[in-house]
Measured scan of single mutants.
Amino acid sequence: QTVVIGDTTYHLNNPEAAQQIAKELAKKYGLKVVISGNTIKLK
């Protein structure tokens, strides 16, 4: 699972954790979560 935040890319072996982290950050910073395949992007 790949999480992309701005110009930073994180690789996590746990998809659920990756999605949870993405949701928390999106909520905290008012970002939009875009999931395509096994890549999660925060914009």
Rank of each mutant, 00 (worst) to 15 (best):
L31D: 01
H11Y: 14
G30K: 09
K43H: 10
N38A: 06
Y29S: 01
Y10T: 00
K41H: 13
K23H: 11
V34E: 11
A22V: 07
I35T: 04
I5F: 10
V4R: 10
T9A: 07
N38W: 05
L12Y: 14
I21K: 08
I40T: 01
N13R: 10
T2P: 04
K23I: 09
Q20Y: 11
I5H: 04
P15A: 13
K32D: 06
V4P: 02
L12H: 04
E16P: 02
I35K: 04
K41L: 14
A22G: 03
I40P: 00
G6T: 03
A22Q: 02
I21H: 03
Q19R: 12
N38E: 03
I5S: 03
T39V: 12
E24F: 15
N13W: 12
K23S: 10
A17R: 10
A22P: 00
L25R: 00
I5M: 06
G37S: 04
E24H: 14
K28P: 00
V4E: 05
L31K: 03
D7V: 12
V34N: 03
G37P: 02
V33Q: 01
K23Y: 14
Q19K: 11
Y29K: 01
N38Y: 06
T8C: 15
L42Y: 04
I5D: 03
N13F: 09
K23E: 11
Q1G: 10
I21N: 00
A18Y: 09
N38K: 08
N14Q: 06
L42P: 00
E24C: 15
P15V: 10
K23D: 10
G30T: 02
A26V: 04
K41T: 15
H11K: 07
P15M: 13
V34K: 04
A26I: 05
A17W: 12
A17Q: 12
Q20T: 09
T8L: 12
V4Q: 11
Q20M: 11
I21D: 00
H11Q: 06
T2H: 08
N14P: 08
N13G: 09
Y29Q: 01
T2M: 10
L42D: 00
E24I: 15
L12V: 10
N14E: 05
T2A: 09
L25I: 06
G30D: 02
Y29P: 02
L31R: 02
A22E: 01
K43P: 03
E16S: 07
V33Y: 06
K32Q: 12
N13T: 10
S36L: 10
L12C: 15
K43D: 06
G30N: 07
I35H: 03
T2R: 10
I35D: 01
K43L: 15
A18G: 03
E24A: 14
S36C: 14
T2C: 15
T8S: 07
I40Q: 00
K43Y: 15
K28E: 03
K43M: 15
K43W: 14
T8R: 14
K23R: 13
Q20F: 12
H11A: 05
I40G: 01
K23C: 13
K32A: 10
K28M: 08
V34I: 11
H11N: 07
A26S: 06
N13M: 10
P15L: 12
Q1S: 13
A26M: 08
G6K: 04
L25V: 03
V3W: 09
I40L: 06
V3R: 02
I35S: 03
G6Q: 05
G30C: 14
N13A: 13
V34W: 09
A17D: 11
K41F: 15
K23W: 13
N14Y: 07
E24T: 12
E16Y: 10
N14L: 10
G6L: 07
P15I: 12
V34P: 00
Q1M: 15
K41D: 03
I35L: 06
T39Y: 08
L42G: 00
A18S: 03
K43Q: 12
L31G: 02
Q19G: 05
K28Y: 13
K27N: 06
E24S: 13
Y10P: 00
I21F: 15
T9N: 03
E16I: 10
K32G: 05
S36K: 09
K43R: 11
A26L: 11
Y29M: 03
V4N: 04
N14S: 14
I21Y: 13
K23A: 11
K43S: 13
I5L: 06
Q1T: 15
I40K: 00
N38M: 07
T39N: 04
V3I: 14
Q1W: 15
V4A: 04
Y10R: 01
A22F: 10
K43I: 15
L25W: 09
Y29E: 01
T8I: 14
I21V: 08
S36D: 12
Q19L: 15
T9Y: 09
K32I: 14
D7A: 13
I21M: 14
Y10D: 01
I5E: 03
K27L: 11
K27H: 07
K23M: 13
G30A: 06
V4H: 07
Y10W: 09
V34H: 06
K32Y: 11
V3Q: 02
N14C: 12
T2F: 13
K28F: 10
G30H: 07
A18F: 13
K23L: 13
E16N: 07
A18L: 11
G37T: 02
Y29N: 02
K28L: 10
T39C: 14
A18M: 09
I35N: 03
N14K: 04
A22H: 00
I21A: 05
T9C: 15
S36A: 08
T8V: 13
K32F: 10
T8G: 04
K43N: 06
T39K: 06
K32E: 10
A17I: 12
L42F: 09
A26F: 11
L25Y: 05
E24P: 00
K27I: 09
T2D: 07
L12D: 00
K23F: 14
K32L: 12
S36H: 09
Q1K: 09
H11I: 11
Q19C: 13
V33M: 13
D7I: 13
A18N: 01
L31I: 08
G6V: 05
K28G: 00
E16C: 11
T39F: 07
